[in-house]
C-alpha cells in the first residue's frame, strides 16, 4: 500500500514539475483570467445591485468571492475535457502507458492533479489577491477553511477524472475532438463558470445538479464564499465524494473495456 502511494505521489510530483516548465503559458493564462474576471465583475455586480443588493443568496461581496475563486481555479480545473491520454491514444504513445506496472487511469489522474496543483500558484494565488483587493467575502466559520480546501481538492480531482472519461473515448473513436468540444461547452456552463448555478432558473439548476459539473467548481466556491453553512458544506462534500467514486469506477470499467478495442496507431 505504501509502495503504491509512493508511485502515484512520484507521478503527481512529476506532473507538478512538468507544469512548472511552462511559465510563460501560466502568465498568459493569468492575464486572460484577470481580464475575464473584471468583465464578470462588471456584469454580475450590476445584476446583484439591480436585484436590490442580493441575488439568490449572493450579496456583492459573496459574488466577488465567487468571481475571483472561479477565475483562479480555471488553470487547475479541467473543464475543457482535454487530457493528454487522448493525444497519446491518437498517436500510439499510449503503448508505453501499458508497459508500466501501474494502473493507467490512476497514473493519468495523478499526473494531471500534479499539474493542476502547480497551476494554483501562478494562476490561483494572484486571483485570490485580486479578490481580496476588491473586497471579497470570507467565510465566518473557521471550519469552512479546511472543508473548503478539501472540497477544492476533490473538485479538481473530479474534474480531471471526468475529463479522463472523455479522453478514453479515443479507445473507440481515435479522434475525440468532437466529443471534447461538446463536453467543453456543457461543462463550463453547468459547473457554474459563467454565472453561479444557484441563479439558474429552477429547471436548469435541476439539470445541472444531476451532473457532476457543479461538484467540480460550484460547491467548493460556495463553501469558501460562506454561501453554505457548515452542515450544508458537509453535505456538498459528501455529494462531491459520491460523484468522484462513481466517475472513477466508470473510468476503471471503460479503461478495461477499451483495452479490448485498442489498436496502437502508427505501428
Amino acid at each position: 500500500m505504501r509502495a503504491t502511494i509512493r508511485v502515484y505521489w512520484r507521478l503527481l510530483r512529476a506532473g507538478f514539475r512538468r507544469q512548472s516548465a511552462y511559465r510563460l503559458a501560466a502568465l498568459g493564462g493569468l492575464v486572460a483570467n484577470t481580464t475575464f474576471g473584471l468583465l464578470k465583475m462588471a456584469v454580475l455586480l450590476a445584476t446583484v445591485r439591480a436585484a436590490g443588493g442580493e441575488l439568490a443568496g449572493y450579496d456583492t461581496a459573496m459574488m466577488s468571492t465567487y468571481i475571483w475563486l472561479s477565475q483562479g481555479l480555471l488553470g487547475s480545473m479541467n473543464l475543457d475535457g482535454r487530457v493528454d491520454i487522448a493525444e497519446r491514444i491518437k498517436d500510439g504513445r499510449v503503448a508505453v502507458d501499458f508497459l508500466r506496472p501501474v494502473d493507467v487511469q490512476a497514473a493519468e489522474i495523478a499526473t494531471e492533479v500534479g499539474r493542476a496543483l502547480f497551476s494554483l500558484l501562478p494562476r490561483g494565488v494572484p486571483a485570490v489577491a485580486m479578490g481580496l483587493a476588491v473586497g471579497m467575502a470570507l467565510p465566518e466559520s473557521a471550519a469552512a477553511y479546511p472543508l473548503g480546501a478539501f472540497s477544492l481538492l476533490i473538485g479538481i480531482v473530479l474534474s480531471i477524472a471526468t475529463a479522463y472519461l472523455v479522453g478514453i473515448c479515443g479507445f473507440w473513436l481515435v479522434e475525440t475532438r468532437g466529443v471534447q468540444i461538446c463536453y467543453m461547452v456543457l461543462s463550463g456552463f453547468l459547473a457554474g463558470l459563467f454565472v453561479p448555478v444557484r441563479i439558474f432558473p429552477p429547471w436548469l439548476a435541476a439539470i445541472a445538479t444531476a451532473t457532476p459539473f457543479p461538484a467540480m467548481m460550484m460547491y467548493p466556491v460556495d463553501i469558501l464564499a460562506g454561501r453554505a453553512n457548515t452542515t450544508e458544506a458537509l453535505g456538498l462534500v459528501a455529494v462531491q465524494c459520491a460523484w468522484l467514486a462513481g466517475v472513477v469506477a466508470a473510468g476503471q470499467a471503460l479503461t478495461r473495456a477499451g483495452r479490448r478495442h485498442l489498436e496502437i496507431q502508427g505501428g
Partner: peptide, 11 residues
Amino acid sequence: FGQRSQLWWDL
C-alpha cells in the same frame, strides 16, 4: 520502442 519515448519529455 525505437520510435516512441518512455521518458518524461520536459524533465
